[in-house]
Design a protein around this nucleic acid. Sequence first.
DNA 1: CATAGTATTGACACCAAGTCTCAATGTCAA
DNA 2: TTGACATTGAGACTTGGTGTCAATACTATG
Lengths: 152, 152
Amino acid sequence: MSDIELIIERIELRGHRITEGRRRVIQAVLKQPSHFTVEDVLQSTRRVGRATVFRTMRLLLDLNIVCRVLLDGGNLHYRISSRGHHHHLVCNDCGRVEDFTGCDVEPLVQALAAAMKYEIDGHWLEVYGRCEACRLLRSGRPESQTTQVLSQ
Amino acid sequence: MSDIELIIERIELRGHRITEGRRRVIQAVLKQPSHFTVEDVLQSTRRVGRATVFRTMRLLLDLNIVCRVLLDGGNLHYRISSRGHHHHLVCNDCGRVEDFTGCDVEPLVQALAAAMKYEIDGHWLEVYGRCEACRLLRSGRPESQTTQVLSQ
DNA sequence: CATAGTATTGACACCAAGTCTCAATGTCAA
DNA sequence: TTGACATTGAGACTTGGTGTCAATACTATG
């Protein structure tokens, strides 16, 4: 079963209708690179209204078919979601994003909950840096500009 | 020395000029509650242009005098920054925000860096939940609506 | 298969947050 | 005091997203 059919099925299971517009948006999303904006999706879906594209993206977000990445600098982009809870490791030079789950934040969050007497619902973690390829590239081109770190 | 004078001094040290507009924006920022939008600041600074308010906020952000909080749901708000690197614990019910630093993410980030062969610049962590006061309130009013967790 | 009920769409106006331009003005070092 | 130049304000523009409402398309059902 193809990716698009799997997604269609999940949408049906939630009681939503399958329309040509939704199919087109999903197809466009599946064609995007590592991360993208709704604008990118709009540009590759002809014959689908702007509002419908935004509405479909929200639907995909609700169904955890896509997630959002907070880029260094503060822009929120979309990304096809790996299954379940995960975080992102973002290369500030080439923009590639890797998902990770292994590095578990839960103990920290639990300790925090106890200390602050909060009941915790969830958390958001993004890590920024430079991937191996970009690091090697950079050592050859020392004048490459640095980016500002959002999380100070 | 008052808060505003301290901030003014930091701006001067960076070689920026002190203007009436900047003074007004800083004063407005200092009067804001826990977190706020630029719109909130705009509304309490008469006689200062919109662009200037945004420009001053960016300056304050660069100087780490304010930071940004990613609220559950995806809105970025501003907040007066506690000194240095920290994270936020956000109550989804009443909106209060607490800073925390004690809960150290560095070891996790270092392990991740090694595993993924990334050079790490920084990270961003927000934790969402319900503060003690809201929890007690809620147990008396079980119909209170739940909010969606952004970071799933 | 026909159809009715209702979910969805598209066009468009609107909103929120932020940037850009450029002539006019303000700041401050000399 | 003045000159260099940093900063401002007004307003147009951009980007990302929502709300409205009549028209259309799905799909469960008969």
